[in-house]
């Protein structure tokens, strides 16, 4: 709890729960049909944060209800939360992908600038700017599109950078970016967990999947004939939040998910072919540093 704004947001979220509680209990007392809480109009950055904060609060509330088997009445807040986030991503439609691409407007110039900034930070010395002409076409397509409720996240990868475009239900966009390179085969053990906002508990988790176990076509001997299949699914576990399934790109062996909380996470990779599970940990703010949305380079967190 660092600022008055954060405190106000928490108070307001609890006040809405209090109003919902009064409405529910009041309707029960009078034996009226339980009225739906009017959904508050949320817009702008504050509204967006409100939705995410609400998602966090309602998730905790729902978990407490399920965990304790006390009460069991659902809260209108959960409905609001569902609008912003869901534990299981929806399959993105072509329209959603096109919309987020158009609204984000990621161009070769933007990716070149991001790549230059990240390389500059990583190398710690000046380098010549990367030319937009060197950005291949495939990098201009989002490699991952994660749709949770009304929030759509598109992730673009260049050689050393992951550029995210997070579009919220109100149409507003955040575009964080992080350095992300596969340094070795153990890169999957070091997922990135970014603060999604500076003033609200939400974490974007991004990383590599474990290497796929590739088989070979017995009729071929060439390296290019390796059979690569999407074998891994990724799940994020956090206290008070139901298990969150990540969106994965099997070909690129990467995953992304965001959760409406911050802290320590357990990421479980499940091999759908063999049933093998691999577990790694991550903490919000670990192993990544934001250099967006204004492309100013931030210092990596001190471990």
């Amino acid at each position: 709890m660092n600022t008055i704004d954060e405190m106000d947001m928490e108070i307001e979220a609890t006040l809405r729960r209090a109003a919902g509680h009064l409405a529910r209990r009041g309707s029960e007392y009078l034996e009226h049909p339980v009225m739906e809480q009017p959904v508050m109009k949320v817009d702008g950055a504050r509204g967006r944060r409100l939705l995410v904060g609400t998602a966090a609060a309602a998730t905790l509330c729902a978990t407490a209800l399920v965990g304790s088997f006390i009460g069991g009445t659902s809260s209108g807040k959960v409905d609001v939360a569902k609008a912003a986030w869901s534990a299981v991503p929806a399959r993105p439609t072509a329209e959603q992908v096109n919309k987020v691409k158009l609204d984000c407007g990621i161009t070769a110039e933007i990716l070149a600038k991001s790549e230059t900034a990240v390389q500059l930070e990583t190398l710690g010395r000046s380098i010549p700017p990367i030319s937009p002409n060197s950005i291949p076409d495939y990098m201009l397509e989002p490699s991952l599109v994660d749709v949770r409720g009304t929030t759509t996240t598109a992730v673009y990868f260049t050689w050393t950078t992951a550029k995210m475009c997070v579009q919220f239900g109100d149409g507003s966009i955040d575009a964080p970016e992080v350095a992300m390179t596969r340094s070795n085969e153990s890169a999957w053990q070091e997922p990135i967990a970014l603060d999604l906002f500076s003033d609200i508990s939400a974490t974007m988790i991004l990383g590599f999947l474990p290497p796929s176990i590739s088989g070979s076509d017995p009729n071929s001997t060439g390296e290019s004939d390796k059979i690569i299949e999407s074998q891994w699914e990724a799940y994020v576990d956090a206290p008070g939040v139901e298990r969150t399934k990540a969106s994965v790109n099997g070909a690129m062996e990467r995953f992304v998910a965001w959760v409406p909380t911050a802290g320590n996470f357990k990421i479980t990779f499940v091999n759908t072919k063999t049933g093998e599970e691999r577990v790694v940990g991550a903490t919000t703010g670990s192993l990544g540093f934001s250099v967006a949305p204004n492309s100013t380079v931030a210092e990596p967190p001190q471990d």
């Binding site: 729960r17 304790s68 006390i70």
Partner: peptide
């Protein structure tokens, strides 16, 4: 008492209200 265990934060807010 109906929410003290179910949702302590809500309980505290109702008390403050």
């Amino acid at each position: 008492p109906d929410v003290v265990h179910e949702d302590p934060q809500l309980h505290d807010m109702l008390q403050m209200l």
